[in-house]
Design a protein around this nucleic acid. Sequence first.
DNA 1: ATATTTTCATAGTTACTAACTATAGAAGAG
DNA 2: CTCTTCTATAGTTAGTAACTATGAAAATAT
Lengths: 300, 300
Amino acid sequence: MDIRLLRYFIAIAESSTFTKAAASLHIAQPSLSIAIKKLETDMGLVLLDRSMREISLTKEGRILYEEAKKLVTHFEHVEKELKRLKAQGPMELSIGIIESAKFWIPKVLKRIKEEFPDVHIEIIEVLGLDDINRALNNFDIHFAITNQLISRKEVEALPIYRENFVALLPPGHALEAQQEIRITDLKDEAFIIFKEGFQTREDILNAFRQAGIKPNIQFEVERFETACSFVEEGLGVTFVPENYLKASTISTYSIKPIKDSTVSRTVYLAFDTNRYLPPLVMRSMYLIQSFFEGMEDLGK
Amino acid sequence: MDIRLLRYFIAIAESSTFTKAAASLHIAQPSLSIAIKKLETDMGLVLLDRSMREISLTKEGRILYEEAKKLVTHFEHVEKELKRLKAQGPMELSIGIIESAKFWIPKVLKRIKEEFPDVHIEIIEVLGLDDINRALNNFDIHFAITNQLISRKEVEALPIYRENFVALLPPGHALEAQQEIRITDLKDEAFIIFKEGFQTREDILNAFRQAGIKPNIQFEVERFETACSFVEEGLGVTFVPENYLKASTISTYSIKPIKDSTVSRTVYLAFDTNRYLPPLVMRSMYLIQSFFEGMEDLGK
DNA sequence: ATATTTTCATAGTTACTAACTATAGAAGAG
DNA sequence: CTCTTCTATAGTTAGTAACTATGAAAATAT
C-alpha cells in the first residue's frame, strides 16, 4: 500500500470529479481512475458511487476519507520530525489564542515545558472565526483557545471554562460613583462593541436583549485592546472579560462588575479531528483541559 | 512512499541483520538491501550503521523505528476499521485488568458507553507481568489496568490510584477478637502469598520487612480468589486489597484493617507508546484517568 | 595468521506497474 | 437530439521491485 493512493483518494473526495482531482494532482485522468480502482480492490471495498456524473463517496468512502486524512497527516508528521532531528531543530507547538487567555496561558505553558523541556512553543493571536479556520486548515496552529462557535464538523470544540465580563468606564464618568453597573444604566451611553462575526458581539447583544434595551453602538472593534484605548480616550463604555484585565496593565479607566444579568462567554479548546495529533499535542491539550477541570460552570 | 518500506525497516530494526529480516519477510536479502537504501534516499537520512557485521540503528533510525511502528499500526487500524464497517461489526475495545479493578471498572465502562454507545468492550483478566506483556505485544488488549511495574521503555505506566490491603483471617481464628491487626501479630501465622514475579508479593514482603519480621509462607498463589478460598478453608492468613472485597461476595472469613504500617500498592494504567492509539482508546484512557483524578495519594 | 563462515552490496535479468495518449461510452445540459 | 463533460478501457513506455548469482568485508574458527 502506497500513501500516494490515499493522497489521490483525498483529492477526489475533495474535488468530487476525477478530472479536476487529476488536474490538481498533476497527473492524467486515466492514471487516477486506475489508481482508485486499485485502492478499491486492495481494500476490498467500493469507495465511490460513479452512477452520477459527479462522483460521490459511499459510506465506506466517507470513513476512509476521514481516516486517510489522519493517516496522511501522521505520515507528514513523521517526515517533519525526521527532518527536524536532522536539522537539530526543536519540537514545535503552535497554539492560537484569544486575547483574554493571556492571563492563564503562561501557567499552562510552564507545565508543558516541564514535561517537554525542548519544545518550542509559538503563541499566535487568533481573532475572528475566519482567522481560526484559516489557521487550523493551514496547520499553522495545532489547536486554538477560542470563544468562537465553530460549526464545521471536522473541528471539535471542548468547553474549558466560562469567563465573566466587567464594564469599563472612562475616567471621570458619571456612573463612576456606583459600586456596580446595571445594563439598563447604559441605555444611552456610547457603547464600543466587537464587529459582526465575533461571538463576543453576540454574547453582549444577548445580554442587552435580556435586559430589554438596545446598546447605543458607536464603535465596532476587533480587539479588546482597541476597545480599552477607546474607553481611555473617553469615547464610550465597553465590556471586557475579567481575565483580559488580569493580563493587561491596569490603566486609568474604572472597572465595574455588571449586576443584573451576568454577561459571560464560554472559552473552548478547538482542534481538527481529521488530523493526526502527535503525543506532544495530545498531552498539551490534556494539560490545558485538566488545568480547568473541576472549575464550576464550564458551560457544558 | 510505500508502507511496505516501513514494514521492511521495522523487521530489520528488530532482527538486526538484513539476512534474518529478509527471511522473516519472505523476500530475498538483496531486495531488502535495495529497499532500505531507497527508504534512506527517500527520507534523506542514514538509518543504519553498517560498519559492523550486525547492523545497528543510527539516532535517526531509532526515531524512525518508533514512529514507523506507530504509523504501521495506524494503517492497520484503518484497514481493520474498514473491514469492520463492511462486516457491520461493532467497535472493539479490549482492556486487561487485575482482580481488584472489578470494583470500579463497571462505573467507568458506563461512561465510555455513554460516549460510544456501539462499542463492544472486552475485559480480560491479566495476572502476572508476562501475561500483560504478552497481551500488549499481541495487541490482544489496548491497555491494561495493572499493579505490575513494567520496565520496558515502550510501555508507559501512569499511576491512577493506590489501594490499601486488609488482613483476612479464617473463621474462628484467635485474632478475630481484635479490632485491628498488627503485622507483628502474624509472626508465626501460616501466610498465603503471591508467587514470585508478582508485584503484590514484593509489596507485602516489604511491609513485613519494615515490621522487622518474616512471614511464615505456607502457600503461594496467583490470584486473590485462590488465596481467599484457602483462608476460608482455614489454611492460613492473607492480605487482599480492600477493593477486591468490594467486588466479591462477602464470605465467612473476617476482615481486619492492618494497623501499624499501611500495606498498599499502586495501580497503573499501562499502554504501548509505540502503537497508534485510536481516538476511542485515547478517550477511554482519559476517562479512566479523570475518574480517579483528585483522589489523594496517587503514589506519583 | 589463515581459512571459513557470515553478512551486506552490486550486477544483471525479468515481471509488474504506474504513468502517459488516444479513444470509446455514459450521463447531463442546451 | 446534439453537444459537452466526465469516466473507463486499450495500448504503449519507462521505471521499479522482485529474483539469482556473485563479490567484498567482517567476525569466527582452526
